[in-house]
Design a protein around this nucleic acid. Structure first.
Length: 642
DNA sequence: GTAGGGTTAG
C-alpha cells in the first residue's frame, strides 16, 4: 500500500513536472541508483563507515563530491535509503547552485517526505535562477499531503518569488503567512519586504515594515534599499537616520546601500558623513564598501578623494576598476578614465562589458576612433556580442567619431534594439549631416513597438532643423505632448528656435521665445542670437545679447557673436565697441581646443599652445608646412595656419 | 536549515 502511494505520488509529481516543461537533467549528473550494488564486498567493515558517509554527505562542498559519496554509499549496500535521500536533498539545498534536478531525483525516492524534506527541496528550487518557481509545485503537493508550512517554508518560497519577480505568487504567500500566523516572524517579514522591493512596490515594502514592531538590521536595510532602488534616495537616507535613532548599528551591507543613496543624491557632505560613520564604528573596509565609496565620491564630483580611496583599497576586483572608469567618464574626465583602463590592463585585470561601456563612452567623447576600433576588435576576439548596453555604447562611439557607416553596421547587427539604440543612431545621423536617414529611422520606431523619449526628439528636431524642414519639425515637436505624452524640455524649445532661425524665420523664432512656457536659458538665447547673426538682425541681436549677458555675465560667447554680427553688417565701430567692453571687463575669448590620437595617446592643443615638450619643433614644422602651402599659391589657407 | 551589498548607454 505504501509503495502504491509512493508510485502515485511520484507519478503526480512527474506529470506536473512534464506539464511545466521541466527537462530533467539527471542524466548529465548520472544519478546513481541502488538497483545494482557492487557484487564484491570491500575488505573493511563498511557498517562502521556508513554513518561517516552520511556525515561526509552533509559537509560536502560540490555536486561532484556529493555524487561520489552517493555512489560509494550505494555500493556499500547501505539500507537506510530514506536517510540517504533526505541528506542528499538537504546537502544540495545549501549549495550556491543547488542542483534542483539532482535533489528532485532523490526526493522522488522518499516514501513519506516530512516538512523538513519539503523545505529542503523547495529551498533547492528557490536558489535556481531558471526555475525557482517550480518549488511551488512541491509546495502544492505538500499542502495536499496535509503538511503545514512553517517559518522556514515561507522564506524559501518568497525567495523564489523575489528571484523571479513574481509578485502574484508573492502576494498569495503573503496571504497564507497571515492565515498561518507566520507574518510576525522576522524572516518572513524580511523576505516579504524583499519581494515587494524587487517588484518595485515601495508602498507595500513600507506597509510590511510598519506592520510588525519587530525589525532587525535586515528589515531596515531592505527598506532603505527599496527606497534607493526606486529612486527615492532621500527617503532611504531618512530611513537610515530613523534606524540610527533606534540604536541599531549599521553593518557593511547597510553602509554600501546608504552610500549608493548618497551617490544618487550627489551630496558630498552626506557621503563624507557616512564615510566617518564607517570609521567611527570600526566597520571593515571590504571590497564592496571600497567600491561604494569610490562610486559615491565620483558621483559627488570629488575625483581626488575617489582616487585616494581607490589607491588605498587592499582588495580590488573588476567592479572597483569599473566604478573608477565609469565614474571618471561621467565626470567628464575622459583621459583619466582611459589611463585607469590602461593601468587595469597592465596589471592583468580582465575587463568585462561594464568596463568596455565606460571606456567606449570616453572614446566617444574624446573622438578617439582608433582606440574605439581596438575595443570593437577586442569584443570580437572575446566573443562579447555588440548588444544591449555595450552595443549602444559602440554605436554612440562610432557616430561621435564620425564613422557613421560603421555605426550603422553595428546597429543593424544588434538583435535587441531599444530606445537607446535608436536614439544613438538617430542623433548620430543628425550630427553627421544625414538628417533624412535620421527621420527614416525615426519612422521605423513605431513599427518595432519602441516609444521614443525626450532625447530621441532632440535628434529628430535637430535633423529637421539642418534640413530646413520647419513644418515637419513643428509637427514632431507638437507630437511630443499630444502623441507620446512627453513634456518638452528647454533643449527642445532650443531646437525649435534653431529650426525657425536657420530657415530665416527670425521673427517667428523671437515670438516663440517670448511665448514659451519655460524660462529661456542660455542655449535658447544663444540659438536666437546665432540666427540673428546668420540673417543680419542687428537690433534684435543686441537685445538678445543683453538677455544672454544677464544669465552668464562671465562668458564671452554673447560678446563674440554680437561683435561678429556688427562686423558682418559692416558696423565696424560697434564691433570694436563690443571688443572694447570685453577688454574693460577683462574678458578673453576662450580658445577652442582640439585633440588628436596617436598610438593610443590623446594629445590636446589650442591656439598658441606651448605646453608640449617638443613645441619648438612642432612650430618649426608648422612654419615649414605654411611655407610649402604659400609656394603652391594657397595664401588664404597659409594665413589660417600661421 | 531561513533574510539584506557595489559598477554600465543615447
Amino acid at each position: 500500500m505504501r509503495k502504491r502511494l509512493f508510485q502515485v505520488r511520484k507519478l503526480t509529481c512527474s506529470f506536473k513536472i512534464q506539464r511545466l516543461g521541466i527537462i530533467m537533467k539527471v542524466m548529465s549528473f548520472s544519478f546513481p541508483v541502488s538497483s545494482s550494488p557492487s557484487p564484491t564486498p570491500p575488505a573493511y567493515d563498511l557498517q562502521l563507515h556508513k554513518f561517516s558517509f552520511i556525515d561526509r554527505l552533509k559537509t560536502c562542498k560540490s555536486l561532484e563530491e556529493l555524487r561520489q559519496i552517493h555512489t560509494q554509499i550505494i555500493k556499500s549496500n547501505f539500507h537506510q535509503t530514506q536517510l540517504l535521500y533526505t541528506t542528499i536533498i538537504s546537502s544540495c539545498s545549501v549549495f550556491h547552485t543547488s542542483y534542483p534536478d539532482y535533489a528532485l531525483s532523490a526526493f522522488q525516492h522518499l516514501l513519506n517526505p516530512t516538512i523538513d524534506d519539503y523545505n529542503a527541496i523547495i529551498r533547492c528550487f528557490s536558489n535556481s535562477k531558471s526555475n525557482s518557481l517550480d518549488g511551488f509545485l512541491l509546495y502544492n503537493e505538500m499542502l495536499r499531503n496535509g503538511l503545514i508550512p512553517n517559518n522556514f517554508t515561507i522564506p524559501f518560497l518568497l525567495k523564489a518569488c523575489a528571484l523571479s519577480r513574481a509578485i502574484r505568487e508573492g502576494m498569495q504567500i503573503h496571504a497564507q503567512s497571515i492565515k498561518l500566523g507566520l507574518v510576525l516572524d522576522v524572516y518572513v517579514k524580511n523576505t516579504l519586504m524583499r519581494v515587494y522591493a524587487v517588484c518595485g512596490v515601495i508602498e507595500a515594502v513600507r506597509k510590511v515594515f510598519d506592520g510588525s514592531p519587530q525589525s532587525d538590521l535586515v528589515s531596515w536595510t531592505t527598506l532603505i534599499q527599496g527606497y534607493v532602488k526606486m529612486g527615492f534616495a532621500q527617503e532611504g537616507i531618512q530611513a537610515f537616520f530613523d534606524m540610527c535613532e533606534t540604536n541599531l548599528q549599521a553593518d557593511e551591507m547597510t553602509i554600501v546601500i546608504v552610500l549608493s543613496a548618497c551617490a544618487r543624491l550627489g551630496d558630498p557632505h552626506l557621503g563624507k558623513r557616512i564615510h566617518s560613520y564607517l570609521n567611527e564604528n570600526k566597520l571593515n573596509r571590504d571590497v564592496f564598501v571600497g567600491n561604494a565609496l569610490v562610486d559615491m565620491y565620483l558621483k559627488c564630483g570629488d575625483v581626488e578623494l575617489a582616487h585616494k580611496v581607490f589607491n588605498e583599497m587592499r582588495m580590488k576586483n573588476v567592479v572597483s576598476w569599473n566604478s573608477m572608469i565609469s565614474g571618471l567618464t561621467q565626470q567628464g574626465e575622459y583621459k583619466e578614465a582611459l589611463s585607469v583602463f590602461r593601468k587595469m590592463q597592465n596589471i592583468g585585470v580582465k575587463p568585462d562589458s561594464v568596463t568596455l561601456v565606460g571606456v567606449l563612452n570616453s572614446c566617444a567623447n574624446l573622438g578617439v576612433l582608433e582606440m574605439g576600433k581596438w575595443l570593437h576588435a577586442y569584443m570580437d576576439m572575446n566573443q562579447i556580442r555588440a548588444d544591449g548596453f555595450i552595443g549602444n555604447a559602440l554605436v554612440d562611439m562610432y557616430t561621435k567619431c564620425g564613422s557613421i557607416d560603421e555605426a550603422f553596421k553595428v546597429f543593424e547587427g544588434m538583435r535587441h534594439k531599444d530606445v537607446y539604440t535608436f536614439t544613438a543612431m538617430i542623433v548620430g545621423f543628425a550630427m553627421n549631416g544625414q538628417g533624412l536617414s535620421a527621420l527614416d529611422l525615426f519612422s521605423e520606431m513605431p513599427k518595432m513597438g519602441i516609444k521614443p523619449d525626450e532625447v530621441t526628439f532632440v535628434g529628430v528636431l535637430s535633423a529637421c532643423s539642418h534640413l530646413g524642414l520647419v513644418e515637419e519639425g513643428l509637427k514632431h515637436f507638437e507630437s511630443m505632448s499630444t502623441v507620446y505624452n512627453l513634456v518638452p524640455q528647454a533643449e527642445h524649445y532650443g531646437c525649435v528656435v534653431d529650426l525657425f532661425g536657420r530657415s530665416g524665420l527670425v521673427r517667428e523664432a523671437e515670438e516663440f521665445v517670448r511665448n514659451m512656457p519655460v524660462e529661456p536659458d542660455e542655449f535658447i538665447w544663444g540659438a536666437l542670437l546665432s540666427s540673428c547673426r546668420l540673417h543680419g538682425y542687428v537690433e534684435l541681436g543686441r537685445s538678445v545679447m543683453e538677455e544672454l549677458i544677464k544669465i552668464e555675465p562671465e562668458k564671452d560667447g554673447a560678446y563674440i557673436l554680437m561683435s561678429n554680427l556688427y562686423s558682418s553688417a559692416n558696423r565696424w565701430g560697434d564691433a570694436l565697441q563690443v571688443r572694447k567692453i570685453m577688454k574693460q571687463r577683462r574678458m578673453k575669448k576662450i580658445p577652442g581646443c582640439s585633440s588628436i590620437e596617436l598610438g593610443g595617446v590623446v594629445y590636446e592643443f589650442q591656439k598658441g599652445d606651448k605646453s608640449h615638450p617638443k613645441s619648438k619643433e612642432i612650430y618649426l614644422l608648422l612654419d615649414d608646412i605654411t611655407n610649402h602651402i604659400k609656394d603652391y599659391g594657397h595664401s588664404m589657407l597659409a594665413n589660417v595656419l600661421s
